[in-house]
């Protein structure tokens, strides 16, 4: 059943511009560095001995912003497919469990974010090679592309929950706007704040912790959202 529901979610996401946004997310972050290095390459290369890592750091300044806001946009789009014409009642009156419907939406969203992270890796790699920055640090490249994805799973779970239960999409969009602020000024904030996690900055200096925390807390928030969704009457 879950496989069929996921197929249906993909079918419904046609012509909604999801894939364009996924592309823009992955590409946009690198495009900003194209402008940055295009304008002042000499200056930037002088800033560090390890040009590749410095380049990756520059990119990873923007990855959390794109992730947090991208999550807010994609979840709102995803739930508006049903919210806009009150199609929840049609969907839930089919022989499906509400839990599976919720899981299908979450899975499709997580998949889209994963594709965006993959695109980010490819574009980062491509432009890095173009800039000719020296030996390619593959480990760091993958780390800065995929760790933020796992670290942002709690945000995805939370935003999906808020977006499905809100009549008014202003609410999930506003939580997205609030959520982006910590990822932009992360240094001074406490480590428990989930919106800080995609920036991979923490007091232990161990970005991998946020991957595990992201998976754990993401699951937890996912279940809370799913059971709350199942508990509610369908409008």
């Amino acid at each position: 059943m879950i496989r069929k529901l996921i197929q249906v979610e993909f079918l419904k996401s046609k012509r909604k511009g999801f894939w364009l946004l996924v592309f823009l997310g992955g590409f946009g972050v690198v495009a900003l560095q194209m402008v940055n290095y295009g304008v002042r390459k000499e200056y930037l290369l002088q800033q560090s001995d390890n040009d590749w890592i410095y380049y990756l750091m520059n990119i990873s300044n923007f990855t959390p912003l794109a992730l947090v806001l991208g999550i807010a946009i994609l979840t709102s789009f995803m739930t508006s497919i049903e919210n806009e014409t009150n199609a929840w009642k049609q969907l839930i009156a089919l022989p499906v469990s509400k839990l599976t419907v919720y899981l299908a939406k979450f899975t499709v969203l997580a998949f889209m974010l994963l594709v965006a992270s993959l695109l980010l890796t490819l574009f980062t790699y491509g432009y890095g090679v173009f800039l000719d920055l020296g030996a390619i640090p593959y480990g760091a490249l993958l780390k800065y592309s995929f760790y933020p994805f796992f670290a942002s799973l709690p945000i995805l779970a939370l935003q999906l929950w808020i977006a499905t239960v809100s009549n008014n999409q202003a609410i999930p969009i506003t939580t997205g706007v609030i959520g982006v602020l910590p990822s932009f000024s992360a240094q001074n904030l406490p480590d428990w704040l989930i919106w800080k996690w995609p920036s991979l900055m923490n007091s232990w200096n161990e970005p991998i912790y946020y991957v595990w925390l992201g998976l754990g807390v993401g699951c937890l928030l996912y279940f809370v959202g799913m059971f709350d969704f199942a508990r509610r009457d369908v409008k």
């Binding site: 529901l5 046609k14 909604k16 199609a87 009156a93 089919l94 022989p95 499906v96």
Partner: peptide
Amino acid sequence: LSKVGSLVENPSYYPHLTARENLEAWRKI
């Protein structure tokens, strides 16, 4: 519900899909 068909209040539909695609989305399930 697998043996029930229903139309509740105003019809629900996905405006950006065609009639056939709408039915396909429900048929799959």
